[in-house]
Amino acid sequence: MKRVGVFVCDCGTNIAAVVDTERVAREATEMPGVVFATTYKYMCSDPGQDLIKKAIREHNLQQVVVASCSPRMHENTFRKAIADVGLNPYLFEMVNIREQDSWVHADKEQATRKASDLVRMAVFKVLKNKPLQTGTIPITKRALVVGAGIAGMQSALDIAEAGYEVVLVDREATIGGRMVQLDKTFPTLDCSA
């Protein structure tokens, strides 16, 4: 069996006020493969990431599960952290116990049980994870800007000034958008053209 580490984040009180993170970590140690589980106040912070790295070395962890916010937020943060200590970044799973648990449920018992269930789900999954390698694709260094009002013109100018080509499209015959319809604009009352 592979050696799994589980890291449960309090997110200050964002998670810990509703989810009993200590209990989630304790229950995680009963799960298959889990050899280490702990909590920390802010797992994404530098000390939090160091804690994960240290645990990987000390406990010879092969797979990592972090239970914290949405993976849409910090998945890459933690992938980088475990890659720093030589683990393949895809031997990692993230459990969302904030956006999809502590923030949407008030009942502590139910929310804690849900957190444990979600951690178990991630542990079962991570045991099946395999190392993955990233590839590369080329980038066409030209930008399309849709709409040539203030926003579009400003974006287009900034990108163009940085040295990249911009294709600026507007459905009207003239650029300028709403702005050119306006008289002086607040708070400076300068002209809008």
Binding site: A148, A156, L157, A160, E161, E165, D170, R171, T174, I175
Partner: peptide, 13 residues
């Protein structure tokens, strides 16, 4: 915007 060499404009598009 109109005069910038890096900007290609398509208006009425």
């Amino acid at each position: 915007v109109a005069q910038h060499p890096n900007i290609k404009m398509y208006t009425y598009a």
